[in-house]
Protein backbone atom coordinates (compact mmCIF):
# COMPACT_ATOMS: atom_id res chain seq x y z
CA UNK A 1 0.00 0.00 0.00
CA UNK A 2 1.47 3.35 -1.05
CA UNK A 3 1.65 6.32 1.30
CA UNK A 4 -1.06 8.07 -0.71
CA UNK A 5 -3.38 5.09 -0.26
CA UNK A 6 -2.58 4.97 3.47
CA UNK A 7 -3.48 8.64 3.83
CA UNK A 8 -6.71 8.17 1.85
CA UNK A 9 -7.70 5.26 4.12
CA UNK A 10 -6.89 7.31 7.22
CA UNK A 11 -8.95 10.35 6.20
CA UNK A 12 -11.82 8.11 5.02
CA UNK A 13 -11.86 6.57 8.49
CA UNK A 14 -12.05 10.06 10.06
CA UNK A 15 -14.92 11.06 7.73
CA UNK A 16 -16.87 7.90 8.64
CA UNK A 17 -16.26 8.57 12.34
CA UNK A 18 -17.67 12.10 12.12
CA UNK A 19 -20.67 11.21 9.95
CA UNK A 20 -22.70 9.66 12.80
CA UNK A 21 -25.64 12.00 12.07
CA UNK A 22 -26.54 9.90 9.05
CA UNK A 23 -27.99 7.42 11.56
CA UNK A 24 -30.64 9.94 12.67
CA UNK A 25 -34.27 8.83 12.53
CA UNK A 26 -35.86 10.13 9.33
CA UNK A 27 -39.32 10.19 7.75
CA UNK A 28 -40.25 6.68 6.61
CA UNK A 29 -38.12 4.95 9.27
CA UNK A 30 -39.58 2.77 12.00
CA UNK A 31 -39.71 4.46 15.38
CA UNK A 32 -37.03 3.24 17.80
CA UNK A 33 -38.40 1.51 20.88
CA UNK A 34 -37.76 3.12 24.25
CA UNK A 35 -38.91 2.49 27.79
CA UNK A 36 -38.44 5.41 30.16
CA UNK A 37 -39.67 6.33 33.65
CA UNK A 38 -42.14 9.19 33.92
CA UNK A 39 -40.78 12.52 35.14
CA UNK A 40 -43.48 12.28 37.83
CA UNK A 41 -42.46 9.68 40.40
CA UNK A 42 -46.02 8.46 40.99
CA UNK A 43 -46.73 7.85 37.28
CA UNK A 44 -46.00 4.57 35.45
CA UNK A 45 -43.14 4.09 32.99
CA UNK A 46 -43.71 4.99 29.34
CA UNK A 47 -42.82 2.55 26.55
CA UNK A 48 -43.17 3.22 22.83
CA UNK A 49 -44.30 -0.39 22.28
CA UNK A 50 -47.32 0.20 24.54
CA UNK A 51 -48.51 3.00 22.22
CA UNK A 52 -48.75 0.83 19.10
CA UNK A 53 -51.94 1.53 17.16
CA UNK A 54 -52.00 5.20 18.15
CA UNK A 55 -50.84 8.31 16.37
CA UNK A 56 -47.99 9.54 18.57
CA UNK A 57 -46.13 12.84 18.63
CA UNK A 58 -42.74 12.27 20.28
CA UNK A 59 -41.08 15.53 21.27
CA UNK A 60 -37.67 16.11 22.88
CA UNK A 61 -37.52 19.13 25.18
CA UNK A 62 -35.52 20.70 28.01
CA UNK A 63 -36.06 23.60 30.40
CA UNK A 64 -32.99 25.45 29.02
CA UNK A 65 -34.42 25.43 25.47
CA UNK A 66 -36.63 28.49 24.95
CA UNK A 67 -38.43 27.31 21.77
CA UNK A 68 -39.27 24.03 23.56
CA UNK A 69 -41.01 25.92 26.33
CA UNK A 70 -43.10 27.94 23.89
CA UNK A 71 -44.15 24.78 22.00
CA UNK A 72 -45.33 22.69 24.96
CA UNK A 73 -48.49 24.66 25.91
CA UNK A 74 -49.49 24.57 22.22
CA UNK A 75 -48.96 20.79 22.16
CA UNK A 76 -51.19 20.58 25.23
CA UNK A 77 -53.95 22.32 23.27
CA UNK A 78 -53.44 19.92 20.34
CA UNK A 79 -53.58 16.96 22.75
CA UNK A 80 -56.97 18.02 24.11
CA UNK A 81 -58.24 18.73 20.61
CA UNK A 82 -57.28 15.34 19.12
CA UNK A 83 -56.88 12.83 21.99
CA UNK A 84 -60.38 11.42 21.40
CA UNK A 85 -59.35 10.66 17.81
CA UNK A 86 -56.35 8.62 19.00
CA UNK A 87 -53.55 11.17 19.40
CA UNK A 88 -50.96 10.59 22.12
CA UNK A 89 -48.17 13.03 22.89
CA UNK A 90 -44.93 11.88 24.52
CA UNK A 91 -42.72 14.83 25.47
CA UNK A 92 -39.36 13.39 26.51
CA UNK A 93 -37.54 15.65 28.96
CA UNK A 94 -33.73 15.57 28.72
CA UNK A 95 -32.98 17.87 31.67
CA UNK A 96 -30.21 16.74 33.95
CA UNK A 97 -31.09 17.08 36.80
CA UNK A 98 -34.77 16.35 36.12
CA UNK A 99 -35.75 18.88 38.82
CA UNK A 100 -35.12 21.62 36.22
CA UNK A 101 -37.87 20.11 34.07
CA UNK A 102 -40.16 19.62 37.06
CA UNK A 103 -39.75 23.29 37.99
CA UNK A 104 -41.09 24.28 34.57
CA UNK A 105 -44.00 21.85 34.89
CA UNK A 106 -45.01 23.42 38.22
CA UNK A 107 -45.83 26.65 36.38
CA UNK A 108 -47.02 24.99 33.16
CA UNK A 109 -48.94 21.78 33.89
CA UNK A 110 -49.15 19.49 30.87
CA UNK A 111 -51.63 16.63 30.51
CA UNK A 112 -49.77 14.29 28.14
CA UNK A 113 -47.04 11.72 28.87
CA UNK A 114 -43.69 13.14 29.99
CA UNK A 115 -40.87 10.60 30.34
CA UNK A 116 -37.55 11.62 31.90
CA UNK A 117 -34.38 10.90 29.94
CA UNK A 118 -31.61 12.64 31.91
CA UNK A 119 -28.86 10.47 30.39
CA UNK A 120 -30.09 11.02 26.83
CA UNK A 121 -30.63 7.31 26.11
CA UNK A 122 -33.75 7.87 23.97
CA UNK A 123 -32.25 11.01 22.43
CA UNK A 124 -29.26 8.89 21.41
CA UNK A 125 -31.60 6.29 19.86
CA UNK A 126 -33.30 8.97 17.75
CA UNK A 127 -29.94 10.75 17.11
CA UNK A 128 -31.58 14.07 17.95
CA UNK A 129 -29.63 16.81 16.15
CA UNK A 130 -31.27 19.96 17.57
CA UNK A 131 -33.67 20.93 20.32
CA UNK A 132 -36.61 20.75 20.14
CA UNK A 133 -37.16 17.96 17.63
CA UNK A 134 -40.54 16.25 17.26
CA UNK A 135 -41.43 13.03 15.46
CA UNK A 136 -44.94 12.19 14.32
CA UNK A 137 -45.49 8.43 14.37
CA UNK A 138 -48.40 6.75 12.62
CA UNK A 139 -50.32 3.78 14.16
CA UNK A 140 -48.00 1.34 12.33
CA UNK A 141 -44.93 2.81 14.01
CA UNK A 142 -43.64 4.64 10.93
CA UNK A 143 -42.21 8.15 11.25
CA UNK A 144 -44.41 10.49 9.18
CA UNK A 145 -42.82 13.83 10.08
CA UNK A 146 -39.56 15.00 11.64
CA UNK A 147 -39.65 18.63 12.74
CA UNK A 148 -36.67 20.46 14.24
CA UNK A 149 -36.91 23.81 16.01
CA UNK A 150 -40.08 25.74 16.78
CA UNK A 151 -40.91 29.06 15.15
CA UNK A 152 -44.07 31.05 14.48
CA UNK A 153 -46.36 29.06 12.23
CA UNK A 154 -44.75 25.69 12.99
CA UNK A 155 -47.72 24.54 15.08
CA UNK A 156 -49.92 24.76 11.97
CA UNK A 157 -47.52 22.50 10.03
CA UNK A 158 -47.51 19.96 12.86
CA UNK A 159 -51.30 20.09 13.31
CA UNK A 160 -51.81 19.55 9.58
CA UNK A 161 -49.58 16.45 9.70
CA UNK A 162 -51.43 15.16 12.78
CA UNK A 163 -54.82 15.59 11.09
CA UNK A 164 -53.55 13.84 7.97
CA UNK A 165 -52.10 10.92 9.99
CA UNK A 166 -55.24 10.57 12.09
CA UNK A 167 -57.20 10.38 8.84
CA UNK A 168 -55.01 7.44 7.81
CA UNK A 169 -53.02 9.23 5.11
Amino acid sequence: MTIKQQLQAFFSLILVTFSANSLAVEEGDSVPDFDLPSIHQDHPAIAMAALEGKTVLVDFWASWCAPCLSSLPLYNDLYHKYKDQGLEIVAINVDNPIEDGLDFLLDTPLDFLIPADPDGDAAELFEVYGMPTSYLIDPNGTVKLVHMGFRNGDIEIIEEAIVSTLAGN
Binding site: I14, F60, A62, S63, W64, C65, V94, D95, N96, D100, D117, G120, A123, E124, V128, Y129, G130, M131, T133
Partner: peptide, 17 residues
Protein backbone atom coordinates in the same frame (compact mmCIF):
# COMPACT_ATOMS: atom_id res chain seq x y z
CA UNK B 1 -4.77 15.20 19.31
CA UNK B 2 -8.20 13.99 18.14
CA UNK B 3 -8.66 11.95 21.29
CA UNK B 4 -9.38 15.15 23.21
CA UNK B 5 -12.18 16.15 20.81
CA UNK B 6 -15.76 15.44 21.78
CA UNK B 7 -19.10 16.47 20.40
CA UNK B 8 -21.63 18.15 22.68
CA UNK B 9 -24.83 16.42 21.64
CA UNK B 10 -28.08 18.40 21.25
CA UNK B 11 -29.52 17.12 24.52
CA UNK B 12 -26.33 17.95 26.43
CA UNK B 13 -26.31 21.64 25.54
CA UNK B 14 -27.96 22.51 28.84
CA UNK B 15 -24.49 22.26 30.35
CA UNK B 16 -23.38 25.13 28.10
CA UNK B 17 -26.29 27.25 29.35
Amino acid sequence: LLSSCTEVRAWERGYLA
